[in-house]
């Protein structure tokens, strides 16, 4: 039942595409931001093309490089996706958190480990299995998402997730959402791997960009199916683990140094 029924596309693809490219050229001509547009045209998936299972987006977290006390990835996520940082929320226990910093300590050795915890984008996601309406789903390119058009807010996925990755939006958002990131009251949400950025062709997530900008380089995002991608190369070099590997969920987020 996980197959998605093909929709009849009424969009005439090629004229539409031409118009977009034309628009892009015009934008470049106007010199508003030619660099961004050229990059997008060069590396992005064409906008009328569906996400493909040839790609599997994933992330490598190098916990040995993740700095204690730094939460740049969390701030970047909240800015990109428009969720209120928990420190600013009036209801911290009910505030959604798409990504959070986790401090681990070994009670025997006192050794501390820092890492960001987010949706692990399982290949076998328990949240997708339990969702009664199919609103919780895995996109062809491995991103686990909530379709808010069919989410009824039952929270069964939150009960099923072993990583506490999901949050319910507990209060009205009063039009504070980002135009690219719809989210709303009564629906469940979680990390989307910045799907709006991926579809735009940015090729990176806000959290990984922020981590690199801060000089930590603890987060590496990329296509795990492409053997030539940076993430695949690093995954071959570094020993990595999956959190709760015993559950055998085949995670899209791998950790080094835990």
């Amino acid at each position: 039942m996980s197959e998605l029924k093909p929709m009849s596309d009424q969009t005439p693809a090629s004229p539409e595409r031409r118009r977009f490219v034309g628009g892009a050229a015009a934008a470049a001509g106007l010199a508003i931001a030619p660099g961004v547009m050229l990059h997008q045209v060069a590396h992005g998936r064409p906008e009328e093309q569906a996400a493909s299972s040839a790609v599997r987006w994933g992330m490598l977290v190098d916990a040995t490089k993740c700095a204690a006390g730094c939460d740049d990835c969390v701030t970047a996520c909240s800015t990109e996706n428009g969720w209120t940082p928990v420190a600013e929320s009036k209801h911290p226990k009910q505030a959604p958190q798409w990504i959070r910093k986790l401090e681990l300590q070994d009670p025997l050795t006192q050794v501390e480990t820092n890492l960001p915890m987010l949706c692990q984008h399982c290949a076998e996601p328990p949240c997708v299995d339990v969702c009664p309406t199919g609103a919780s789903f895995k996109r062809a390119d491995g991103i686990v998402l909530v379709n808010r058009h069919t989410c009824i807010g039952c929270r069964y996925c939150m009960m099923a997730c072993p990583y506490k990755a999901r949050s319910l939006v507990h209060e009205p958002l009063n039009d504070t959402q980002k135009p690219d990131v719809p989210r709303g009251i009564g629906c469940v949400e979680s990390c989307t791997l910045c799907v709006q950025k991926i579809d735009r062709g940015d090729g990176n997530t806000a959290c990984a960009e922020a981590c690199t900008a801060a000089g930590h380089n603890a987060l590496l995002f990329g296509d795990m199916n492409d053997p030539e991608s940076e993430i695949s190369k690093r995954l071959r070099e570094l020993p990595t683990k999956q959190v709760r590997a015993d559950l055998n969920l085949n995670l899209g987020v791998r950790y080094h140094g835990i």
Binding site: M1, V128, C131, T133, G134, R155, L168
Partner: peptide, 18 residues
């Protein structure tokens, strides 16, 4: 339900693994 107004969705969209 978080969206109790959408009960009809629960009656029309099914995931039989759930």
């Amino acid at each position: 339900l978080g969206r109790s107004d959408r009960l009809i969705v629960a009656m029309t969209h099914f995931n039989f693994k759930s």
